[in-house]
């Protein structure tokens, strides 16, 4: 098994982003270095004020209210908090996609401090060539 994991976060709904945080947690628990590349709708949710409207993907819509109510009742942390916790446990680097950041005129300081850097796809693919890679 590779000792590196790479996640591409394309989706901007909280269910998929939470799945990514949970998988990243599993990665560091298995001593893997985890690189996360956030682009498109994922990047819009890591803006400093991007957490205001939690949403789920299309297939989750019928259960959305029920699931969010249960998560609130059970104090389930949001995906950014979960990712911060995982970052305390192991080596996780979070990168914003330069192309989409440029398109929306976002700088690193416009994004949540969990983002380590803004890099291009070439650099991300280069660092991921020996990784277990997932597109979420």
């Amino acid at each position: 098994m590779p000792d590196k994991m790479s996640l591409v976060l394309f989706s901007g709904t909280d269910d998929k982003l939470m799945a990514a945080s949970i998988i990243a947690s599993g990665g560091v628990a298995n001593d893997m270095d985890v690189d996360i590349f956030i682009t498109f709708w994922g990047l819009t949710k890591i803006e400093k004020d991007g957490q205001k409207n939690p949403d789920v993907s299309f297939e989750g819509q019928p259960m959305k209210d029920q699931v969010f109510a249960l998560m609130k009742k059970n104090n389930v942390p949001d995906w950014v908090t979960m990712l911060k916790n995982a970052k305390e446990v192991g080596n996780i680097k979070v990168y914003g996609c330069a192309m989409f950041a440029d398109l929306l005129q976002l700088k690193k300081e416009d994004l949540d401090p969990i983002v380590d850097d803004i890099i291009g796809v070439n650099e991300f693919v280069s660092m991921s060539k020996d990784s277990m890679t997932m597109f979420i």
């Binding site: 949970i22 947690s25 560091v28 628990a29 059970n74 104090n75 979960m82 192991g90």
Partner: peptide
């Protein structure tokens, strides 16, 4: 009363 992956992260 915390959910996966919380307890394992706390243990590590």
């Amino acid at each position: 009363n915390t959910f996966c992956p919380g307890p394992l992260m706390e243990l590590i």
